[in-house]
Design a protein around this nucleic acid. Structure first.
Lengths: 214, 214
DNA sequence: GTCTATAGCTTGATAGAC
DNA sequence: GTCTATCAAGCTATAGAC
């Protein structure tokens, strides 16, 4: 593959990521993507089989790295606790903070991707299948870790709590601007420090309250 | 307006609600909607100005009732506490339980509408504007009530906690089937009793943990 | 690898008969 | 109110020159 080819391919993926994130799969045409990428429509079909194939490629491009940084964060937590179990909050932080850190450090690169994930997660059409395929292996490892931290918790409680975590996390990623409106500017969707300080503690408190047998 | 007309109009709205919920605004054609409704394409444009006008009509049709039942639930809580402030959990329950109750009692009517709201809430394209327009007046009243229950809480903390609540609540409504997959059938997206038992307690614990100054 | 050109279809929307 | 018929525009995707 010529070096020029891969460059164009990445430009197409960048353009597709940006537009799919804003308008969803059906809300964007291949023509719009290629106009944004500054290349001809036919090139989309040279580099990808179809519009749907391009969509999958956009998702896949960053999924591995996303899973890697989260696995690494959980590795680090477990190495800090060779004998005892880590706290629920430490585990939740290993799940959320790597993503918030990516966003904080390279906002332009990750914002659109995370907004896309948020839409997929909440879509009956895509959510069940795609989230399961891309992220459930990682999620299972986190669930195992939490189970060890709370050995008396019922599985059904743990899974529901994960559902609430997932919703809170992805809406926060979507950066829709609603919280900016509601708070009249007091909160800003893109303020990752503010989220970092609150989201993992909020979620860990919920887990403890629901899953800890009294 | 003839009685037959309104009947057809409702059938169009039902069909549009169902399809928009599954595939989003752009993912559905007017032709598909009218096929589902069992009427001719031209009738869509007799009853509504445009596809977008039909979309807004779908949203508007149930928004008032949704807001009414939540206002009524908060009224009831406040009447139970003429002198002291209600607990955070009571207020959260007045926010969430009326919707879960609608879903539990009349699942077929409300499932698609709530799935649609979930997608809009997580869409950068629609979320900021539409959620603000339809629901923020009600949300402000709930924020005021919570502020009275936690007089020492900082506003910025309260708004972020509302954001987490909103994400958890709407993903739960979306019924994407992901939690069914992840839990291998242990949890079911449509099990409103399971959610009722856990969601408000989870959220209230988060609010208390973040907003209560130690 | 990148372009021109175009096939074959579907789209949102409307005009006009009944 | 409801239908038939239709339009201009835009769509995904491809064939073939360079």
């Amino acid at each position: 593959m010529a070096p020029r080819s891969n460059e164009t391919k990445q430009r197409i993926l960048d353009a597709a990521e940006k537009l799919f994130a804003k308008e969803g799969f059906a809300g964007v045409t291949v023509r719009q993507i290629m106009r944004e990428a500054g290349a001809d429509v036919a090139l989309a079909y040279y580099h990808f089989d179809s519009k749907r194939d391009l969509f999958d490629a956009v998702l896949m491009r960053r999924a591995d790295h996303m899973n890697d940084v989260r696995h690494a964060a959980l590795d680090a937590v477990e190495q800090r606790h060779p004998d005892d179990a880590p706290s629920v909050q430490e585990i939740i932080e290993a799940f959320t903070q790597p993503l918030l850190k990516l966003l904080a450090e390279d906002h332009d690169t990750w914002r659109d991707y995370f907004a896309l994930i948020a839409q997929i997660n909440n879509s009956p059409q895509w959510g069940g299948e795609l989230m399961t395929r891309f992220f459930d292996p990682l999620v299972r490892r986190f669930m195992d870790a939490i189970r060890r931290a709370m050995p008396d918790a019922a599985d059904v409680d743990l899974f529901w709590c994960y559902n609430f975590l997932s919703g809170a996390l992805t809406l926060t990623f979507a950066e829709t601007g609603r919280i900016d409106n509601l708070s009249q500017g007091l909160c800003q969707s893109k303020d990752m420090d503010a989220i970092s300080d609150r989201l993992p503690r909020f979620i860990a408190a919920g887990f403890r309250h629901i899953c800890n047998p009294t």
